[in-house]
Design a protein around this nucleic acid. Structure first.
Lengths: 254, 254
DNA sequence: CGCGATATTGAAGTCTGTCAAGCCCTGTGG
DNA sequence: CCACAGGGCTTGACAGACTTCAATATCGCG
């Protein structure tokens, strides 16, 4: 076993710089997702922002709250969700380092953003952001690119969450977490993170609310994938992919 | 009956100008959605764009196609959708005048955009768009605003399409069409458009694929709402709201 | 006015949601 | 380091809703 006690507390001496990652409009290299911010922009944003550290389940911003800032996640994982009057919760996205949240309408946040793991984020006041953008038009273009990225992600989410059966929804989710969630590992030693092991930092309840299912259905879908030898649960949050091809097929198959 | 034959062919002598509508970041007036483009921007975009007229079911751009332009819908209704390998279709959005489509990734369209009714759109080459944006930073900000708008819409769609039962999904959809679809009436005389009558320009199949249901379930959900005196179908595409409060409750109730 | 496409209705099967119980994991405290 | 307690996860049984398959009715266009 790895010695966790020592490494778990290692905070980066310097916090990571602001970072916005997205797939660009035109192919750059082989990379699917690249850093959009230039070192200058990172420094500028860092200067005008405040650093926020949250423990698990801490709130970045509440739905309906007065929107004065956006947040740039640089470490850890977060989620955004809506609460309906009847108490139903719908998770609309999971956020990883390089992501933004704080979408507003008419000056109010349209969703709640909450820490899934301990996290570090830059709180970027909207006034400051507008200031920088006015001096640096390139940043505007970068934000545009990021929003296109998020829009594509939102569409994929809809497609994923409206799949017919739970098994396919979960399979699609696991594939997505394999690529998106590769980064974002938090206070966890990287021991099991590599290769064909997916780490799911969120609770089953979060996955269920993200996929439009119940926790029970998520469990049963895991069981179904496991029975077919597609994946194996080492622990609830550590999923080993036994058959990558089968997992890919499981997202589309008839 | 109204004499449709004559009015169906009345084309505006001058096509409508380019138009991008969205809810702004900060409340402007009572208006929820406003025109973002200045008259100058409208003129500039019109000059560099080509006008596209499509008949019902015509294609604006195909998924996977080389992305060279975005489209600005100025008349009629369109939809975007994904086709999965197994043949399932998921409609990701309905577009109305003031909307944009042509989202791309790595230079390729990520979805297919198709005319739901006869429509008119501006085809804006990406090269030209980049050109204008470089000269007019304000336009960049407007596009940013529009993308935020679309992102919120995408989130609402996900919430709508993952509601538990078909009745609530359809109720939410109808409410949305009442506000969004108020504009966009196409080759239809405005006779039945006003008041508490909702015109649904798309097919049941489109609605089903948008809500993650089958056409049969959509029909039965209509029936359920009708049995409860919430709405009444004057024809498949003309829905009269009998009880607006009940319709609103039907979207949230336990 | 008639035909093809679209929409509705019906019946049976399947999957998910619900309710309930038990197990396992995790984190806390000794 | 270990024990314990609480929360999270899984499993089972049943009812309900949706999907599927099939047939009929209706709409809308030529």
């Amino acid at each position: 076993m790895t010695r966790n006690a020592a490494s778990a507390d290692r905070h980066p001496v310097l916090p990571p710089l602001p970072s916005i990652k997205a797939a660009p409009f035109v192919r750059v290299r082989a990379a699917r997702v690249v850093e959009l911010l230039t070192p200058d922009e990172q420094r500028e944003l860092a200067e005008l922002s405040t650093l926020v550290r949250l423990r698990r389940h801490g709130m970045l911003h509440p739905e309906g709250g007065h929107a004065e800032a956006v947040f740039n996640l640089v470490r850890g994982v977060a989620q955004t969700y809506h609460l309906s009057p009847s108490g139903e919760r719908r998770v609309t996205s999971f956020l990883f380092p390089g992501d933004l949240c704080g979408l507003s309408e008419n000056g109010y946040y349209v969703n709640t953003a909450q820490a899934v793991t301990n996290l570090i984020a830059y709180r970027i006041p909207l006034r400051a952001l507008r200031n920088i953008v006015s001096r640096d038009p390139a940043l505007d273009a970068h934000l545009l690119c990021k929003l296109c990225h998020d829009l594509r992600a939102a569409e994929r989410h809809t497609v994923m969450a409206t799949r017919r059966d739970a098994r396919r929804r979960l399979a699609a989710f696991l594939l997505r977490m394999q690529s998106d969630g590769a980064d974002g590992a938090d206070d966890v030693d990287e021991g099991g993170g590599g290769g064909d092991v997916i780490r799911l930092p969120m609770l089953r309840h979060d996955i269920a609310d993200y996929l439009g299912l119940t926790v029970e259905s998520v469990s049963r879908a895991f069981q179904a994938l496991e029975d077919d030898g597609v994946v194996r649960r080492r622990s609830p949050k550590l999923i080993r992919i036994m058959n990558p091809d089968a997992l890919r097929r499981a997202t589309e198959e008839e």
